[in-house]
């Protein structure tokens, strides 16, 4: 009887199919390729199809934008408006850091208080809900009246944008602190301050960092919008308004790309910090 059985010991599994370079890098290739394709169409469209006279005014090809970025960032040429791009960049960075710093100083202590006291929490809740739901931009006109045109108005808008995500996340983190762990450290004789230091803060740190990530996004948004309307002399938002009014679409997009890159870089950096700080957590809940 000739049966074609394969003895277990002689059976050799076929080697796993070699993964091609494409298969290994499919997401990168497709993602990068799509972005390149978009740029290519954008670049070539006017050359192939031509643009109406009106549209020409509003159009800048990627090469125009890169040229603008090069001359502004690398050659540090003067803008057609006022100053150099770096002066505006520094002004915006200053506003961003100041406003964000202020919101951290306010949000962290307040968040801890709200998280630890049910009564204070219940009383603040409607206000936080209302302010968090409303775009803070709505307060711009009143902020302008109170703080006057210029620096402090911009700071106030950035602050209002960033403070709520931080506050809400700090609060959630504190509230989420494990009762058992609080009892554990109490049983070892910890006082209220030590309970906060040993349990409440470490426990809420991942929440706070996640809040920080949100707050940074909101703060950048705040810088842009506040500089649109805030009446400061320097700032990237100021440049954008002026560039669009003088039909310098290349400069407008150049600044937009600067914002984009900065946002992505900061977000990635915070994400990095988040991962470092959550080494103690099992991997599956690391991303918040």
């Amino acid at each position: 009887m000739a049966t074609s059985t394969v003895e277990p010991s002689t059976y050799i599994a076929p080697p796993p199919a070699e993964e091609t370079y494409y298969e290994a890098h499919e997401p990168t290739i497709l993602g990068g390729g799509f972005i390149l394709a978009v740029f290519a169409v954008w670049e070539l469209y006017p050359a192939i199809f031509g643009l109406s006279k009106g549209m020409k005014l509003f159009f800048a090809t990627p090469s125009d934008i890169i040229a603008a970025l090069y001359s502004l960032l690398i050659l540090n040429e003067k803008l057609p408006m006022v100053g150099t791009i770096w002066q505006h960049f520094n002004a915006s960075t200053g506003t961003f850091l100041f406003g964000l710093g202020l919101s951290i100083i306010v949000a962290l202590p307040l968040g801890v208080v709200l998280g630890r006291s049910q009564t204070v929490d219940a009383m603040f809740d409607p206000f936080i809900t209302a302010f968090n739901a409303t775009p803070r931009l709505v307060f711009l006109p009143i902020v302008l009246i109170w703080f006057g045109v210029g620096f402090w108005t911009v700071i106030a808008i950035v602050f209002l944008g960033a403070v709520f995500p931080l506050l809400i996340n700090t609060y959630a983190g504190v509230k989420n602190a494990d009762k058992l762990l609080i009892n554990v450290v109490r049983s070892f004789g910890a006082n209220e301050w030590q309970i906060n230091k040993l349990v409440v803060l470490p426990n809420s740190l991942p929440f706070i960092i996640a809040g920080l990530r949100l707050a940074i996004g909101r703060a950048i948004l705040g810088v842009v919008v506040a500089e649109f309307f805030g009446g400061t002399e320097f700032g990237l938002g100021v440049i954008m308004v002026q560039a669009s009014q003088s039909y310098r679409v290349d400069i407008l997009f150049a600044v937009l790309i600067i914002f984009m890159v900065v946002s992505l870089l900061i977000t990635a950096a915070v994400k990095q910090i988040e991962n470092r700080l959550s080494r103690w957590r099992p991997a599956k809940i690391k991303t918040f």
Partner: peptide, 11 residues
């Protein structure tokens, strides 16, 4: 005290 649910500080 030794706690039932361990009560270790996870961080």
């Amino acid at each position: 005290m030794v706690f039932q649910e361990f009560g270790l500080l996870p961080w």
